[in-house]
Nucleic acid binder design. Structure first.
Lengths: 333, 333
DNA sequence: TTTTGTTATGTTACAGCTAATATAATTTGA
DNA sequence: TCAAATTATATTAGCTGTAACATAACAAAA
């Protein structure tokens, strides 16, 4: 076993300077709390020993850690990188550390990750789901820290939700497609997590209202461009009359468009395709991708703001904060 | 101030069960260390109180933290999500926690993040850079934990590097383009971090060897599809004879291709375009993108394996582990 | 000078868990 | 049956920093 070198402690510094560690502690927190002479002496030794702070004792003896936990389903998913950017813009400014974890869309893994984050005495938690295991709910309750659920607002499980209405967003996009004349619209899903299912609900509702038949093509795999292409193939085989496709995200939509182009299927003439989230890639491509534009960074920012305000002890003002979405028609429908 | 609810401790459980907290500690670590009767009794109370472990005391008493730190420049960058996946596949299997931090390509931020990770007594560190501030080097030295530098192997700053040779990779791709007949190849850079500069070096070397003029078009902004399109515009204006483009990453390359398509510039006939890393998006698109395929997941995996082995006290076998790369010609050059 | 106020430093105690060691309880074996 | 071996539980001490309180040192005011 490699034994970590014994790192210098406050006591080590104190011994060299000839004071007690309390003085060093004060200096590190705010140098002006110590006399000018001391400041110099201590600074030299701190530098010399290369002191590295140790958070453990602080976590042990005090309630606040000045850190929050953030759980996202996946790091590969660009949607969440933007959410994270929003969160950190707020936490950094407020001097909070952000402990990031991902759970691969699994409730069980989410539970483990939350347990791990809580073991570091975080002051608050931002989740990306609104469905959790029993034990997760119990842990959160026991920890007694504020929690925000991000992204979807249709059925928050805990205290406060920030995001938009996935069902309505899907409903509106599909309605737009129907209004444009599409009749055989298929829904592309991947991984079938909660949000994918909510969008399916909105899709089904729109189809039903117009007396149209709802068809879903999906896979359990994580979505990707390649997968969009594969789902298109499957769709052409299973539902040859398809004239429209609504995808749970832009990755699938872009993959499907590429595949159409490869097969010589004209977009939007023969098939109209719409995605979800309005990522950069879809906006730059030819044809410009129709998509539901979601306020990802803002969701992160508002979530963090709400969380910090609650950590400060302020009460919940709005249990549900709806940040809305926009339908972008682009050129692909 | 919101006061976090006082979480149950081992003592609380012990009191209810009527034993000492040591017995509870043993049970939690390995239930079989405790008599069968106790196991049942304790399990009930643990469940009932919703016990959440507290890592602080453990960290404090200098035991191993069973956590490693991983620093990546950016979470938005898909390259690094794949590296992280590789790392976690190893650390999870070994029961290690991975503490993730990102530093936005800034040495100074890297320093802060490292300080933060070290304050949690991590057992090892994986970095994505081979250039660091003075203080970073000092801290790492003082902490006395093993460190791996990932991605580039041309000039490791600390102990051990895992990755490939960026200069050579760029050199080989550009040489391939030259061999195919391209003469006015421009290099697209973004953010001009260390790796971007290394690739530029390889590009310049290949151009020079063939008596060709090297031209770089770049921006300080983070790369994106949109940016690739913008750089293409700039290039057409500045270097109208351009017949080839080598990009520091696939995002720029894809953006450039889209822009060419929009402008009616034929690829690869009029302009050949090559990217770097071989991401999914480039492989599915039309035309299939030429790119340097890098073993990203493997870099993560090997880095983690090496780190864990060194945490166990094993010596460094190879200071530099070169995992190579492949030139994929695709259809875009 | 003495008193009071102010600033700088010191002292004490504590947070929760576990390694190491001690003791009690139980089983085994001759 | 009782000593020895084994197993189960208890006791003690320590990890590092800081809040809270105590004291010392010095300056200003009376």
């Amino acid at each position: 076993m490699m034994n970590k070198k014994k790192r210098p402690t406050l006591q080590d510094i104190a011994d060299r300077v000839g004071v007690t560690k309390m003085t060093i502690s004060r200096f590190l927190k705010d140098p002006s709390q110590v006399s000018a002479v001391m400041q110099e002496k201590i600074a030299v030794v701190v530098e010399e020993l290369g002191y590295i702070p140790n958070r453990a004792p602080d976590l042990l003896s005090r309630a606040k850690s000045n850190a929050i936990g953030v759980l996202v389903p996946s790091l590969t998913n660009q949607v969440f990188s933007e959410v994270i950017r929003g969160i950190e813009s707020v936490t950094e400014a407020a001097g909070y550390q952000t402990m990031l974890a991902h759970y691969g869309y699994s409730n069980k893994v989410e539970e483990q990750r939350i347990s791990y984050l809580l073991s570091y005495s975080i002051d608050g938690l931002i989740l990306s789901e609104s469905q959790h295991t029993e034990r997760t709910l119990k842990m959160i309750h026991t920890a007694g820290i504020p929690v925000i659920e991000m992204m979807d607002i249709t059925s928050p499980a805990i205290e406060q939700a920030v995001g938009f209405d996935n069902v309505d967003a899907a409903y509106r996009m599909v309605s737009t497609m129907i209004k444009k004349g599409y009749r055989h619209i298929v829904y592309f899903g991947a991984r079938m997590d909660v949000r994918t299912k909510l969008k399916q609900k909105g899709y089904a509702k729109a189809m039903q209202e117009h007396g149209l038949v709802a068809n879903t093509v999906f896979t359990e795999a994580a979505s990707s461009f390649t997968l969009g292409a594969a789902l298109l193939q499957e769709t052409l085989a299973k539902h040859p009359k398809t004239d429209g496709i609504f995808c749970t995200n832009d990755d699938l939509a872009i993959g499907a468009i590429f595949e159409c182009q490869r097969l010589g299927i004209s977009i939007p003439k023969q098939i109209g395709i719409a995605g979800f989230h309005g990522l950069d890639a879809g906006q730059i491509m030819q044809p410009n991708l129709a998509s539901v534009i979601t306020p990802r960074e803002k969701i992160g920012r508002v979530s963090a703001e709400q969380l910090l305000s609650r950590i400060k002890g302020e009460p919940i003002e709005d249990k549900i904060i709806d940040l809305g979405f926009n339908i972008h028609q682009g050129e692909s429908i």
